[in-house]
Design a protein around this nucleic acid. Structure first.
Lengths: 199, 199
DNA sequence: TAAATTAGCGTACAGTTGTAAGCTGAATAA
DNA sequence: TTATTCAGCTTACAACTGTACGCTAATTTA
């Protein structure tokens, strides 16, 4: 087998090993290099052939998680096009995502308020993507001013992420209730933004 | 000096030591018993005379942090009584709090999404206090239905905490901007809740 | 084919961790 | 006064950490 390909595969197995360790009891700052290496089936020192640090691996994981979320958004946009309502479709898509990729979302959630400045910044960048896209969408569909559209988008993204956090630990029925409540809260904001005078 | 008193003092110095270690780079799960003991000026094993675990200390810290926040709310209520608007006064009081007690708020924020189920539950209880009190207040002052009042309160608390998180890393000017934006977003919700039909 | 590169390994070390065991001296109780 | 209690200490140990160093074997290059 080609050397390059093998290296890529090992790298992937390190990344996968790390994700699998990030359950609801572990965070990036609490997994050790040796533990990741063990899970990936390599010697501790071999780790360094792929990443300078555990931190470099961490940033890679945040990037991958952000990418997965952005792909989710594209998917949601497709579903919106085929009817169902923006809020409904977006919330449902999002809730599906956190159920199917709980460790991925958990990583973003955890590191958003975590102990590493670099990780926090990386997660914030990903969230900013959401804010920008939702702001643009809002301006295009409602004609709200940039300022109001941005405030609305930011508030909505915060509520969605916050509900997602609750959803991680919730049962299926609880998630349904949660999604219903979230949709109403988002409508509050949408309706309120239309009628609130700014400045 | 009395033995009892001395024990209480040592206990306090352990708690204070722990809080002082919880800066923006450390969380409960990353501070060690030995480190806390070192900071408190006692031998590592003496720690056990006061707490069974590092976890027991952690729960104590969360309780103290929650208490501090509840005291803050009382203070805010007093200020509201003397005029200025509910949202304005509450946000300003809250922002002052996170500036003056950043490590206390950071603890709640961190453990809210942290790796310990017990800590997450403890923080959630504290947040629930906020939701309940704000729900009651909203029903009393606006006459909204319990359901809508609760949805509104929950959304508001989430936005406030989320803005608080951003405020921790922000400069004074940034905090002002943040507070202004938060106030507008809370008005969106307040206005929206009044006008959104539920069910 | 011969030489160079390199992914992965084994060994090793110093530093940290939690905590068990037992001692000491001072505050308290009798 | 004498006996008891107990907060805090010292010492000790096994488990774990990150990572430096040098070797091996196989792929890649010349």
């Amino acid at each position: 087998m080609s050397r390059q390909l093998q290296k890529l595969r090992t790298r992937r197995s390190i990344i996968d090993a790390a994700f699998s360790l990030l359950d609801d009891q572990r965070s990036l700052s609490s997994i050790s290099l040796r533990e990741v290496a063990r899970e990936a089936g390599i010697a501790p020192t071999s780790f360094y052939r792929h990443f300078k640090d555990i931190d470099e691996l961490g940033l890679t994981l945040v990037d991958e998680a952000g990418l997965a979320l952005r792909q989710l958004m594209r998917q949601a946009r497709l579903r919106i096009a085929s009817g169902g309502g923006v809020i409904n479709t977006s919330v449902d898509t999002f809730m599906e995502f956190i159920s199917d990729n709980s460790n991925v979302f958990r990583l973003l959630l955890r590191e958003h308020t975590g102990t590493s400045l670099a990780f926090r910044a990386a997660v914030l960048r990903e969230i900013q993507h959401f804010n920008v896209e939702l702001t643009d969408y809002t301006m295009a569909t409602t004609g709200l001013s940039p300022k109001v559209a941005n405030l609305q988008a930011e508030a909505m993204v915060k509520l969605v992420f916050s509900a997602g956090a609750e959803g991680l630990d919730a049962s299926v029925e609880q998630k349904k209730i949660l999604a219903g409540r979230l949709k109403l809260q988002l409508r509050f904001i949408a309706n309120g933004a239309l009628r609130t005078t700014v400045d």
